[in-house]
Write a protein that binds this DNA or RNA. Structure first.
Lengths: 192, 192
DNA sequence: TGCTTTTTGGGACATTTGTCCAGTAAAATA
DNA sequence: TATTTTACTGGACAAATGTCCCAAAAAGCA
Protein backbone atom coordinates (compact mmCIF):
# COMPACT_ATOMS: atom_id res chain seq x y z
CA UNK A 1 0.00 0.00 0.00
CA UNK A 2 1.21 3.48 -0.81
CA UNK A 3 2.21 5.81 1.97
CA UNK A 4 -0.53 7.96 3.39
CA UNK A 5 0.53 11.51 4.04
CA UNK A 6 -1.32 12.79 7.04
CA UNK A 7 -0.02 16.29 6.46
CA UNK A 8 -1.81 16.36 3.14
CA UNK A 9 -5.23 16.23 4.69
CA UNK A 10 -4.47 19.36 6.72
CA UNK A 11 -3.45 21.25 3.61
CA UNK A 12 -6.50 19.98 1.80
CA UNK A 13 -8.75 21.23 4.56
CA UNK A 14 -7.56 24.83 4.37
CA UNK A 15 -7.04 25.31 0.64
CA UNK A 16 -8.85 24.24 -2.49
CA UNK A 17 -5.97 22.36 -4.10
CA UNK A 18 -5.97 20.46 -7.35
CA UNK A 19 -4.64 16.91 -7.20
CA UNK A 20 -1.57 18.00 -9.14
CA UNK A 21 -0.77 20.68 -6.60
CA UNK A 22 -1.13 18.27 -3.70
CA UNK A 23 0.91 15.61 -5.40
CA UNK A 24 3.89 17.91 -5.30
CA UNK A 25 4.13 16.85 -1.69
CA UNK A 26 4.86 13.22 -2.50
CA UNK A 27 8.46 13.87 -3.41
CA UNK A 28 9.03 16.47 -0.71
CA UNK A 29 7.83 14.90 2.52
CA UNK A 30 10.30 12.78 4.44
CA UNK A 31 9.83 10.65 7.53
CA UNK A 32 11.43 10.23 10.88
CA UNK A 33 10.89 8.34 14.09
CA UNK A 34 12.05 9.61 17.45
CA UNK A 35 12.55 7.54 20.57
CA UNK A 36 11.23 8.92 23.83
CA UNK A 37 13.58 11.63 25.03
CA UNK A 38 15.34 12.04 21.69
CA UNK A 39 16.05 15.54 20.39
CA UNK A 40 14.81 16.66 17.00
CA UNK A 41 16.46 20.03 17.08
CA UNK A 42 19.02 21.46 19.43
CA UNK A 43 19.23 24.95 20.75
CA UNK A 44 21.62 27.08 18.68
CA UNK A 45 20.99 25.16 15.44
CA UNK A 46 18.99 26.90 12.77
CA UNK A 47 15.62 25.23 12.44
CA UNK A 48 15.24 24.06 8.85
CA UNK A 49 12.28 21.72 9.12
CA UNK A 50 8.65 21.87 9.95
CA UNK A 51 7.41 18.56 11.29
CA UNK A 52 3.96 17.13 11.44
CA UNK A 53 3.18 14.71 14.24
CA UNK A 54 1.57 11.52 13.01
CA UNK A 55 1.88 9.89 16.40
CA UNK A 56 3.39 11.04 19.65
CA UNK A 57 4.10 14.24 21.55
CA UNK A 58 6.84 16.83 21.22
CA UNK A 59 7.86 19.65 23.48
CA UNK A 60 10.15 22.57 22.85
CA UNK A 61 12.13 24.13 25.66
CA UNK A 62 14.77 26.75 26.27
CA UNK A 63 17.07 27.48 29.17
CA UNK A 64 16.69 30.25 31.73
CA UNK A 65 19.66 32.16 33.12
CA UNK A 66 20.16 29.52 35.79
CA UNK A 67 20.37 26.77 33.19
CA UNK A 68 16.94 25.34 34.05
CA UNK A 69 14.71 24.04 31.27
CA UNK A 70 11.57 26.01 30.51
CA UNK A 71 9.00 24.30 28.34
CA UNK A 72 7.90 26.66 25.66
CA UNK A 73 5.21 24.56 24.03
CA UNK A 74 3.84 21.09 23.45
CA UNK A 75 2.61 19.65 20.18
CA UNK A 76 0.32 16.65 19.84
CA UNK A 77 -0.91 14.36 17.10
CA UNK A 78 -2.00 16.08 13.89
CA UNK A 79 -0.19 19.27 14.79
CA UNK A 80 2.78 21.01 13.24
CA UNK A 81 5.91 21.79 15.24
CA UNK A 82 9.10 23.68 14.65
CA UNK A 83 11.13 26.37 16.25
CA UNK A 84 9.07 28.71 14.10
CA UNK A 85 10.93 31.85 15.07
CA UNK A 86 14.20 30.32 13.96
CA UNK A 87 12.63 28.83 10.85
CA UNK A 88 11.34 32.25 9.87
CA UNK A 89 14.34 34.39 10.71
CA UNK A 90 16.94 31.72 9.92
CA UNK A 91 18.72 32.68 13.10
CA UNK A 92 19.83 30.13 15.66
CA UNK A 93 16.97 28.60 17.60
CA UNK A 94 16.64 29.41 21.28
CA UNK A 95 14.68 26.22 21.80
CA UNK A 96 15.38 22.54 21.60
CA UNK A 97 12.66 20.16 20.46
CA UNK A 98 12.30 16.80 22.13
CA UNK A 99 10.05 13.75 21.89
CA UNK A 100 8.14 13.04 25.12
CA UNK A 101 7.12 9.58 23.91
CA UNK A 102 8.05 7.52 20.85
CA UNK A 103 7.01 9.74 17.99
CA UNK A 104 6.44 9.45 14.22
CA UNK A 105 6.91 12.48 12.04
CA UNK A 106 6.34 13.71 8.53
CA UNK A 107 8.85 16.38 7.65
CA UNK A 108 8.90 19.30 5.26
CA UNK A 109 12.20 21.11 5.09
CA UNK A 110 12.96 24.66 4.07
CA UNK A 111 13.90 23.76 0.51
CA UNK A 112 10.75 21.73 0.05
CA UNK A 113 8.64 24.56 1.38
CA UNK A 114 10.39 27.05 -0.90
CA UNK A 115 9.56 24.82 -3.84
CA UNK A 116 5.93 24.76 -2.86
CA UNK A 117 5.83 28.52 -2.38
CA UNK A 118 7.43 29.11 -5.75
CA UNK A 119 5.02 26.69 -7.42
CA UNK A 120 2.30 29.26 -7.18
CA UNK A 121 -0.43 31.22 -5.58
CA UNK A 122 -2.21 28.43 -3.69
CA UNK A 123 0.80 27.30 -1.74
CA UNK A 124 1.77 30.88 -1.02
CA UNK A 125 -1.69 31.44 0.40
CA UNK A 126 -1.59 28.22 2.39
CA UNK A 127 1.65 29.35 3.98
CA UNK A 128 0.06 32.61 4.98
CA UNK A 129 -3.02 30.92 6.40
CA UNK A 130 -0.99 28.47 8.45
CA UNK A 131 1.19 31.26 9.76
CA UNK A 132 -1.96 33.14 10.69
CA UNK A 133 -3.27 30.14 12.59
CA UNK A 134 0.00 29.79 14.47
CA UNK A 135 -0.22 33.46 15.32
CA UNK A 136 -3.73 33.12 16.68
CA UNK A 137 -2.70 30.17 18.85
CA UNK A 138 0.26 32.04 20.22
CA UNK A 139 -1.92 35.06 20.87
CA UNK A 140 -4.30 32.96 22.92
CA UNK A 141 -1.42 31.67 24.97
CA UNK A 142 -0.11 35.18 25.49
CA UNK A 143 -3.52 36.39 26.64
CA UNK A 144 -3.75 33.47 29.06
CA UNK A 145 -0.53 34.68 30.68
CA UNK A 146 -1.82 38.21 31.06
CA UNK A 147 -5.35 37.39 32.08
CA UNK A 148 -5.15 34.19 34.12
CA UNK A 149 -3.31 32.93 37.18
CA UNK A 150 -1.19 29.80 37.01
CA UNK A 151 -4.03 27.85 38.61
CA UNK A 152 -6.47 29.09 36.00
CA UNK A 153 -4.10 28.23 33.17
CA UNK A 154 -3.82 24.74 34.58
CA UNK A 155 -7.60 24.38 34.68
CA UNK A 156 -7.89 25.54 31.06
CA UNK A 157 -5.31 23.00 30.03
CA UNK A 158 -7.04 20.33 32.06
CA UNK A 159 -10.34 21.10 30.32
CA UNK A 160 -8.85 20.97 26.84
CA UNK A 161 -6.17 18.31 27.08
CA UNK A 162 -7.00 16.21 30.10
CA UNK A 163 -6.01 13.00 28.32
CA UNK A 164 -2.53 14.30 27.57
CA UNK A 165 -1.77 15.62 31.04
CA UNK A 166 -0.95 12.21 32.48
CA UNK A 167 1.69 11.71 29.84
CA UNK A 168 3.57 14.91 30.63
CA UNK A 169 5.92 15.08 33.63
CA UNK A 170 4.84 17.66 36.16
CA UNK A 171 8.06 19.62 35.90
CA UNK A 172 7.49 20.21 32.19
CA UNK A 173 3.92 21.26 32.75
CA UNK A 174 4.96 23.60 35.54
CA UNK A 175 7.38 25.65 33.49
CA UNK A 176 4.95 25.64 30.58
CA UNK A 177 2.36 27.17 32.88
CA UNK A 178 4.85 29.60 34.36
CA UNK A 179 4.88 28.25 37.91
CA UNK A 180 7.33 26.21 39.99
CA UNK A 181 6.84 22.44 40.29
CA UNK A 182 6.14 22.94 43.98
CA UNK A 183 3.36 25.32 43.16
CA UNK A 184 1.81 23.16 40.46
CA UNK A 185 1.67 20.38 43.02
CA UNK A 186 -0.30 22.73 45.28
CA UNK A 187 -2.58 23.69 42.39
CA UNK A 188 -3.32 20.08 41.57
CA UNK A 189 -4.21 19.31 45.14
CA UNK A 190 -6.54 22.31 45.31
CA UNK A 191 -8.30 21.40 42.06
CA UNK A 192 -9.17 17.85 43.07
CA UNK B 1 2.28 67.76 -3.37
CA UNK B 2 0.83 64.29 -3.64
CA UNK B 3 0.24 62.27 -0.53
CA UNK B 4 3.14 60.25 0.71
CA UNK B 5 2.17 56.80 1.83
CA UNK B 6 4.41 55.78 4.67
CA UNK B 7 3.06 52.27 4.58
CA UNK B 8 4.38 51.88 1.07
CA UNK B 9 7.96 52.12 2.12
CA UNK B 10 7.50 49.22 4.51
CA UNK B 11 6.08 47.06 1.75
CA UNK B 12 8.85 48.14 -0.56
CA UNK B 13 11.47 47.13 1.97
CA UNK B 14 10.28 43.55 2.28
CA UNK B 15 9.27 42.72 -1.29
CA UNK B 16 10.61 43.46 -4.73
CA UNK B 17 7.55 45.22 -6.10
CA UNK B 18 7.10 46.83 -9.48
CA UNK B 19 5.78 50.38 -9.45
CA UNK B 20 2.49 49.14 -10.85
CA UNK B 21 2.04 46.71 -8.01
CA UNK B 22 2.78 49.36 -5.41
CA UNK B 23 0.51 51.88 -7.05
CA UNK B 24 -2.41 49.61 -6.34
CA UNK B 25 -2.17 50.99 -2.84
CA UNK B 26 -3.00 54.55 -3.86
CA UNK B 27 -6.69 53.83 -4.21
CA UNK B 28 -6.87 51.50 -1.25
CA UNK B 29 -5.27 53.36 1.62
CA UNK B 30 -7.46 55.67 3.68
CA UNK B 31 -6.56 58.07 6.47
CA UNK B 32 -7.71 58.82 9.94
CA UNK B 33 -6.73 60.99 12.86
CA UNK B 34 -7.42 60.04 16.44
CA UNK B 35 -7.51 62.39 19.42
CA UNK B 36 -5.74 61.32 22.56
CA UNK B 37 -7.89 58.75 24.32
CA UNK B 38 -10.09 58.04 21.32
CA UNK B 39 -10.95 54.44 20.46
CA UNK B 40 -10.18 52.99 17.04
CA UNK B 41 -11.79 49.66 17.65
CA UNK B 42 -14.00 48.50 20.48
CA UNK B 43 -14.00 45.12 22.12
CA UNK B 44 -16.65 42.84 20.61
CA UNK B 45 -16.47 44.44 17.17
CA UNK B 46 -14.85 42.44 14.40
CA UNK B 47 -11.56 44.05 13.45
CA UNK B 48 -11.70 44.88 9.75
CA UNK B 49 -8.74 47.21 9.40
CA UNK B 50 -5.03 47.10 9.72
CA UNK B 51 -3.65 50.50 10.57
CA UNK B 52 -0.20 51.92 10.11
CA UNK B 53 0.94 54.59 12.53
CA UNK B 54 2.35 57.66 10.81
CA UNK B 55 2.49 59.57 14.03
CA UNK B 56 1.46 58.74 17.56
CA UNK B 57 1.03 55.73 19.83
CA UNK B 58 -1.71 53.14 20.12
CA UNK B 59 -2.39 50.55 22.75
CA UNK B 60 -4.73 47.60 22.72
CA UNK B 61 -6.31 46.34 25.91
CA UNK B 62 -8.80 43.80 27.12
CA UNK B 63 -10.68 43.36 30.38
CA UNK B 64 -9.90 40.83 33.11
CA UNK B 65 -12.64 39.07 35.06
CA UNK B 66 -12.81 41.97 37.52
CA UNK B 67 -13.38 44.46 34.72
CA UNK B 68 -9.89 45.94 34.97
CA UNK B 69 -8.08 46.96 31.79
CA UNK B 70 -5.07 44.90 30.79
CA UNK B 71 -2.82 46.37 28.13
CA UNK B 72 -2.10 43.77 25.56
CA UNK B 73 0.33 45.69 23.38
CA UNK B 74 1.58 49.08 22.30
CA UNK B 75 2.34 50.22 18.77
CA UNK B 76 4.53 53.16 17.84
CA UNK B 77 5.37 55.17 14.77
CA UNK B 78 6.03 53.14 11.62
CA UNK B 79 4.38 50.07 13.03
CA UNK B 80 1.23 48.21 12.08
CA UNK B 81 -1.57 47.64 14.54
CA UNK B 82 -4.82 45.74 14.59
CA UNK B 83 -6.60 43.23 16.69
CA UNK B 84 -4.85 40.69 14.52
CA UNK B 85 -6.54 37.66 16.02
CA UNK B 86 -9.94 39.12 15.22
CA UNK B 87 -8.80 40.29 11.81
CA UNK B 88 -7.65 36.78 10.98
CA UNK B 89 -10.49 34.77 12.42
CA UNK B 90 -13.20 37.36 11.75
CA UNK B 91 -14.51 36.71 15.22
CA UNK B 92 -15.27 39.50 17.68
CA UNK B 93 -12.19 41.17 19.05
CA UNK B 94 -11.36 40.71 22.71
CA UNK B 95 -9.35 43.91 22.66
CA UNK B 96 -10.08 47.57 22.19
CA UNK B 97 -7.56 49.81 20.48
CA UNK B 98 -7.00 53.32 21.77
CA UNK B 99 -4.81 56.32 20.94
CA UNK B 100 -2.49 57.32 23.79
CA UNK B 101 -1.67 60.63 22.13
CA UNK B 102 -3.01 62.40 19.06
CA UNK B 103 -2.36 59.91 16.29
CA UNK B 104 -2.31 59.86 12.48
CA UNK B 105 -3.07 56.64 10.67
CA UNK B 106 -2.97 55.07 7.26
CA UNK B 107 -5.57 52.35 6.98
CA UNK B 108 -5.93 49.23 4.90
CA UNK B 109 -9.23 47.45 5.35
CA UNK B 110 -10.08 43.83 4.77
CA UNK B 111 -11.50 44.42 1.29
CA UNK B 112 -8.46 46.36 0.22
CA UNK B 113 -6.18 43.64 1.51
CA UNK B 114 -8.21 40.98 -0.27
CA UNK B 115 -7.81 42.92 -3.50
CA UNK B 116 -4.07 43.04 -3.02
CA UNK B 117 -3.90 39.35 -2.22
CA UNK B 118 -5.93 38.46 -5.28
CA UNK B 119 -3.79 40.69 -7.48
CA UNK B 120 -1.03 38.15 -7.39
CA UNK B 121 1.89 36.31 -6.00
CA UNK B 122 3.89 39.23 -4.62
CA UNK B 123 1.17 40.58 -2.39
CA UNK B 124 0.35 37.08 -1.21
CA UNK B 125 3.97 36.63 -0.25
CA UNK B 126 4.12 40.01 1.45
CA UNK B 127 1.12 39.06 3.55
CA UNK B 128 2.87 35.90 4.62
CA UNK B 129 6.09 37.68 5.45
CA UNK B 130 4.35 40.34 7.52
CA UNK B 131 2.39 37.69 9.37
CA UNK B 132 5.64 35.88 10.04
CA UNK B 133 7.19 39.03 11.46
CA UNK B 134 4.20 39.58 13.71
CA UNK B 135 4.55 36.00 14.85
CA UNK B 136 8.21 36.44 15.69
CA UNK B 137 7.46 39.59 17.70
CA UNK B 138 4.74 37.87 19.63
CA UNK B 139 7.01 34.90 20.24
CA UNK B 140 9.64 37.18 21.75
CA UNK B 141 7.06 38.67 24.04
CA UNK B 142 5.86 35.22 25.06
CA UNK B 143 9.40 34.11 25.84
CA UNK B 144 9.95 37.24 27.90
CA UNK B 145 7.00 36.21 30.08
CA UNK B 146 8.37 32.72 30.61
CA UNK B 147 12.00 33.60 31.03
CA UNK B 148 12.08 36.98 32.76
CA UNK B 149 10.69 38.54 35.91
CA UNK B 150 8.54 41.65 35.74
CA UNK B 151 11.56 43.72 36.72
CA UNK B 152 13.63 42.23 33.91
CA UNK B 153 10.86 42.82 31.39
CA UNK B 154 10.76 46.44 32.51
CA UNK B 155 14.49 46.80 32.02
CA UNK B 156 14.28 45.32 28.52
CA UNK B 157 11.57 47.76 27.63
CA UNK B 158 13.54 50.59 29.14
CA UNK B 159 16.56 49.67 27.05
CA UNK B 160 14.60 49.48 23.80
CA UNK B 161 11.95 52.17 24.18
CA UNK B 162 13.20 54.53 26.86
CA UNK B 163 11.94 57.56 24.96
CA UNK B 164 8.40 56.24 24.82
CA UNK B 165 8.14 55.22 28.46
CA UNK B 166 7.52 58.75 29.70
CA UNK B 167 4.51 59.01 27.42
CA UNK B 168 2.80 55.91 28.76
CA UNK B 169 0.91 56.02 32.06
CA UNK B 170 2.34 53.68 34.64
CA UNK B 171 -0.87 51.73 35.04
CA UNK B 172 -0.81 50.80 31.33
CA UNK B 173 2.82 49.77 31.49
CA UNK B 174 2.19 47.70 34.60
CA UNK B 175 -0.49 45.50 33.10
CA UNK B 176 1.51 45.22 29.90
CA UNK B 177 4.41 43.89 31.94
CA UNK B 178 2.16 41.62 33.97
CA UNK B 179 2.64 43.29 37.35
CA UNK B 180 0.51 45.53 39.59
CA UNK B 181 1.03 49.32 39.43
CA UNK B 182 2.25 49.16 43.02
CA UNK B 183 4.89 46.70 42.05
CA UNK B 184 6.03 48.58 38.95
CA UNK B 185 6.52 51.58 41.19
CA UNK B 186 8.81 49.44 43.35
CA UNK B 187 10.65 48.20 40.27
CA UNK B 188 11.25 51.72 39.03
CA UNK B 189 12.64 52.79 42.35
CA UNK B 190 15.02 49.82 42.44
CA UNK B 191 16.26 50.44 38.90
CA UNK B 192 17.22 54.07 39.42
C1' DT C 1 -4.95 81.14 36.53
C1' DG C 2 -7.29 78.35 39.87
C1' DC C 3 -10.05 74.30 40.66
C1' DT C 4 -10.89 69.44 39.91
C1' DT C 5 -9.58 65.07 38.57
C1' DT C 6 -6.23 61.70 37.63
C1' DT C 7 -1.84 59.71 38.36
C1' DT C 8 2.02 58.51 41.09
C1' DG C 9 4.80 56.95 45.11
C1' DG C 10 5.15 54.56 48.98
C1' DG C 11 3.79 52.59 53.98
C1' DA C 12 1.62 48.57 56.22
C1' DC C 13 0.04 44.33 55.86
C1' DA C 14 -1.86 39.98 53.49
C1' DT C 15 -1.40 36.60 50.07
C1' DT C 16 0.84 34.14 46.71
C1' DT C 17 4.53 31.81 45.13
C1' DG C 18 9.30 30.21 45.37
C1' DT C 19 13.25 27.70 47.63
C1' DC C 20 15.04 24.06 50.13
C1' DC C 21 14.49 19.71 51.69
C1' DA C 22 13.36 14.93 52.83
C1' DG C 23 10.49 10.89 52.51
C1' DT C 24 7.94 8.16 49.33
C1' DA C 25 6.46 6.57 44.89
C1' DA C 26 7.30 5.53 40.29
C1' DA C 27 10.04 4.54 36.40
C1' DA C 28 14.20 3.18 34.01
C1' DT C 29 17.89 -0.07 33.68
C1' DA C 30 20.75 -3.96 34.36
C1' DT D 1 13.40 -9.05 39.59
C1' DA D 2 16.56 -6.16 42.04
C1' DT D 3 18.85 -1.91 41.90
C1' DT D 4 19.37 2.60 40.70
C1' DT D 5 17.69 6.77 39.19
C1' DT D 6 14.23 10.08 38.60
C1' DA D 7 9.82 12.23 39.76
C1' DC D 8 6.24 13.61 42.99
C1' DT D 9 4.32 15.37 47.42
C1' DG D 10 4.19 18.36 50.96
C1' DG D 11 6.30 20.83 55.38
C1' DA D 12 8.71 25.00 56.87
C1' DC D 13 10.24 29.12 55.85
C1' DA D 14 11.66 33.13 52.78
C1' DA D 15 10.98 36.20 49.08
C1' DA D 16 8.13 38.33 45.77
C1' DT D 17 4.08 40.51 44.73
C1' DG D 18 -0.66 42.09 45.56
C1' DT D 19 -4.23 44.89 48.11
C1' DC D 20 -5.63 48.85 50.46
C1' DC D 21 -4.81 53.28 51.46
C1' DC D 22 -3.53 58.22 51.63
C1' DA D 23 -0.76 62.26 50.58
C1' DA D 24 1.81 64.62 47.01
C1' DA D 25 2.37 65.67 42.23
C1' DA D 26 0.81 66.19 37.69
C1' DA D 27 -2.45 66.78 34.23
C1' DG D 28 -6.79 68.29 32.43
C1' DC D 29 -10.31 71.73 32.29
C1' DA D 30 -13.29 75.81 33.19
Amino acid sequence: MANIFYMKSIFQSIQNFSNEELDLLDDLITFRMLKKGELLLTESQVCNEIVFIKKGILRSFFLNHKGGEITNCFAFENEFMASFASFITQEKAEESVQALVDTELEILDRKALEKLYQSGFNWQETGRKLTELEFVNLHKRMVSFQKLSGAERYQELYKNHQNYLQLIPLQYLASYLGVSPRHLSRIRKAVL
